[in-house]
Design a protein around this nucleic acid. Structure first.
Lengths: 372, 372
DNA sequence: GTTAGGATTGAGACCGGACTCACAAGGGGT
DNA sequence: ACCCCTTGTGAGTCCGGTCTCAATCCTAAC
């Protein structure tokens, strides 16, 4: 109905001022609610504004206040409910303080992350929350700090940078859950992650992700304490897509000395692993024990319900946003930095180790010739 | 070279111009890559920019180009993987064309949505993608249209507004899946949704959500064709939180003439329903058949795998972003408006109706027999 | 040797608000 | 009546870019 072709010029303070027969300065004061304005003028201006459907141009406003009331959030993958919930925590909190969120997805690609940070900085966001893809490549984050723009990290830290970081202590929970598996009799525990690396894992390798590094450290510590050798051959990284996750799962379960327990690095990867286990005809936990990071609601619906490592993801999002906003407002960081602890939720997917023979049988019966 | 202490003033074109010993206009041309600039000047300017680590202020740029290269996305709940994936489709597509995304969560609250739209408009986004909470309260969307700002809707339409809308034909798929359930012998089919309404459902009621309305229409049509009465008493709305979902589930399954099949309106609600069914000691599909909207990976992991209505959510996100960007660039809408069809994925949670007596038994002696 | 015409260039006008400054008017104190 | 101080007000600057316009160069054509 209305002509949309010719975009009508937006109404500005000047227009309102003219309509209210006052100076632009007065109109601005009345609308911006600052300075001294007589009741008479205020009334006329507000009426005119209403009449003309005036809406302030936030861009212009941001321009000379230097505040955009917008924060940038850079995550690896919103599709992953882990980040979905965290994002929810961030946006909920941001909204309460009048901030909007520009969300950028990096697909865990550092180059994309660097670009994202640059663009957000160019857009003059008031601050950034980043779940860094790499804990090593951190120059871009350092640049954010240098420019004096507030920054808060999520999930993983960035080298030895001194930044507020909202993350659980992965080493501890990994240690605890590995102990749990070891106590159940497992010796061959596989750890499968999407983390991209140049070469296959070997002990002592420097990993790009502090989070994964910590988890492996926790595992090793548990093994060490028990005096058992750490099965580094079962640490499988680079399980990027569903196919490679499934292939890796097959490998660790069908190899000569197979894994008797599998740990999934996140909720997305877990889906493919469990599917593959089911497809191999193996039963959880009778044949293989299973443990995953992140507690999603669906993990209670499988048979058996899955044993998981629950992380307070929503709260971490909330805390990250709060910390960032505090920084933006120039307040000092919260006195005792908030600590987040993950908890091992024992449900039913971890059982006692079974005799290896069963696996051998499975291997032979499957007639799988794959062995690189 | 690197920063000294704190907040250095941002480098501007003027600074670069001075360093390169040219006028501000020339520097701007060289940097903005427009107008005529000699090789000599271009070189000096770019060198100076590099040297000073110049970064353009996108705010200022947006201000007089009128383009912010940002689109606003307003959804009900990012936590819901349905929107998570859609959002992924939107951001992926937007990024390819150089657009950023400001994401706002409304919690399916119309007031919040109105506010969100206003704020985004004030921020001068180039266009909006909205999954409207209400198909009735659409003044704010009309206002977007009137202002000539591009708009694309997701999932649900808005009254009789003429807007590009990316959504599946819910009536059709609902009709199809209801037929499927009816053919399996089910007569008492429950439909549970979070949709907020003033009063309980009754036939002919005007619903706020076109999507839910269409689904119910499809169900009714299927019943009508079979000459069977539509069990309006089993349509349960307002199942907002986990508790009420569970309560409603119990109600429809334990009432005198109980439902023999349950349809979950979305993937989030489905979790609680299935959990409650399991807790009641009922078996799927032996005791109750189950069907849900949205195909999430985890639905393949339950025993039995769940029968679902798969919607091309990612693609709808992609299409919405494409359509919006097309509008922003002033191009005409895609010739044949893209059609999205949902598909019924028959897995294993729908079975033949069981004798009602079984339910009576379950109701009376919920000394729930543990399943095999 | 001019001269037309395109390539370069700098000054300055915007964009739409926020904010500084100079100045007028009104009230109170002495 | 005089001075001080608190409001109220408009003109104009600024933020950091884009873009117009007129002036200046330079080179090929006449």
């Amino acid at each position: 109905m209305s002509s949309n072709g010719s975009r009508r010029r937006e109404v500005t303070v000047a227009d309102v001022a003219k309509a209210a027969q006052v100076s632009k300065a007065q109109a601005a004061r009345a609308l911006g609610n600052y300075g001294a304005v007589s009741e008479d003028v205020r009334g006329r201006v507000l009426a005119a504004a209403e009449q003309l459907e005036y809406r302030p141009n936030e861009l212009a406003r941001s321009m000379n206040t230097g505040k955009s009331n917008t924060i940038g959030v850079v995550v690896g993958d919103i599709e992953n409910p882990h980040f979905g919930l965290t994002t929810r925590g961030i946006t909920d909190t941001a909204k309460k303080s009048g901030f909007n969120v520009i969300l950028v997805n990096t697909d865990e690609d550092t180059a994309a992350e660097v670009e994202a940070v640059r663009v957000l900085l160019d857009k003059r966001v008031d601050g950034l929350i980043v779940a860094p893809a790499s804990s090593v490549e951190t120059r871009h984050l350092q640049r954010v700090q240098d420019s004096g723009r507030p920054l808060v990290l999520l999930d993983r830290n960035a080298g030895q940078m001194d930044v507020e970081t909202m993350a659980v202590n992965m080493a501890d929970i990994s240690h605890e859950s590995t102990q749990y598996l070891l106590q159940a009799g497992h010796r061959r525990i596989a750890f499968i992650s999407t983390l991209k690396t140049e070469s296959p894992y070997r002990i002592g390798m420097v990993l790009d992700s502090s989070q994964i590094a910590d988890r492996l450290e926790g595992m090793q510590k548990a093994y060490q304490e028990t005096g058992l050798p750490f099965p580094a051959d079962l640490v499988r990284l680079n399980a990027g897509d569903a196919d490679s996750i499934r292939r890796v799962t097959r490998e660790v379960l069908l190899m000569p000395d197979p894994a008797t327990a599998v740990v999934a690095s996140d909720g997305l990867i877990a889906l493919s692993i469990v599917e593959e286990i089911q497809e191999l005809g193996l039963a959880i936990p009778a044949d293989v024990s299973f443990l995953m990071y992140d507690d999603f609601a669906w993990t209670r619906l499988t048979t058996p319900p899955l044993t998981v490592i629950a992380q307070p993801v929503y709260n971490m999002g909330v805390a990250a946003a709060k910390a960032l906003i505090r920084q933006i407002q120039g307040l000092p960081p919260q006195k005792p930095a908030p600590k987040f602890t993950a908890t091992l939720v024992r449900r039913g997917s971890v059982g006692a180790r079974r005799a290896v023979e069963a696996f051998r049988a499975a291997e032979i019966g499957c007639a799988c010739p794959t062995k690189p």
